[in-house]
Design a protein around this nucleic acid. Structure first.
Lengths: 131, 131
DNA sequence: AATAAACCTATTGACATAGTAGGAAATAGG
DNA sequence: CCTATTTCCTACTATGTCAATAGGTTTATT
């Protein structure tokens, strides 16, 4: 299940794209438009800056803006950054985890296929598709 | 993310299908074969009995068995019973929840489409496909 | 009667989620 | 330089879910 972090973060990205006029957009405005607690958004937005998704500018006239054009972002990359993983099953989430039942597990192939479908959808969807 | 409940439950169903000889299969055997704590499986299996997925028989010679043929079960119905919902997004999980931003939400159509893809896959997959 | 199984209630430790609180640092305009 | 505005940073917290564990009661077979 995608948590509020991922969902709110995606909405911030859309808001930034829709209100982009070249200048920085203050979080206060985004929080009001999106009806989300500004304080909570701070945490989310911080992660997005650290992940290189957006950039921030402090001080008066500051705010946030996208670093790429909306068509260059995929929903998948945004959600992955905020959720840690968008993997549907624990045994696939950690790449380094070596399940002892890996070879005889009857469900693993299905989970892999399912995971592939989920990834294909989310990485195929662009931010610009949501505007 | 599908939890152990759903994943273990699915493996119990597969185990029951694979070892079905008409008689009841004790949970002890399933737990050993699947390398899962029997005590934990009790909780999961109880839900599956209550949900009508399998039936149990107490006493010596007792155990559990499927109530339908493996091709009559879908992975989706098994996971939905154990996970409560397999919905990918909170705002769609509760059918009665009426989001105030429903009409203007830019992400809702995408989540609906995504949810549809997930459902189609999981309800299209049959227990017999995993044997 | 003995045995083996399901069935039932309760508890627990660890972690994640969804925030809140309060302030420090940076930047622009006057 | 001063003030207002904004990001940036650390910490805290309530609530709930997950993944079990524990110990006993009931039911059915041999």
């Amino acid at each position: 299940m995608i948590s509020t972090k991922g969902r709110y973060g995606l909405r911030v990205m859309i808001d930034l794209a829709q209100n982009d006029d070249g200048s920085y957009i203050p979080l206060k405005d985004i929080a009001e438009r999106q009806e989300i607690s500004k304080k909570y958004l701070e945490i989310i937005v911080k992660q997005m800056v650290e992940g290189g998704l957006i950039k921030g500018l402090s001080g008066k006239g500051g705010g946030y803006k996208l670093v790429k054009k909306p068509e260059k972002y995929t929903v998948g990359e945004i959600l992955t950054l905020l959720e840690g993983t968008i993997c549907s099953v624990a045994c696939l989430a950690d790449k380094n985890y070596d399940c002892p039942r890996r070879k005889k597990c009857e469900t693993l192939p299905m989970w892999k296929e399912f995971d592939g479908i989920v990834h294909d959808y989310l990485y195929g969807k662009k931010l610009s598709d949501l505007l």
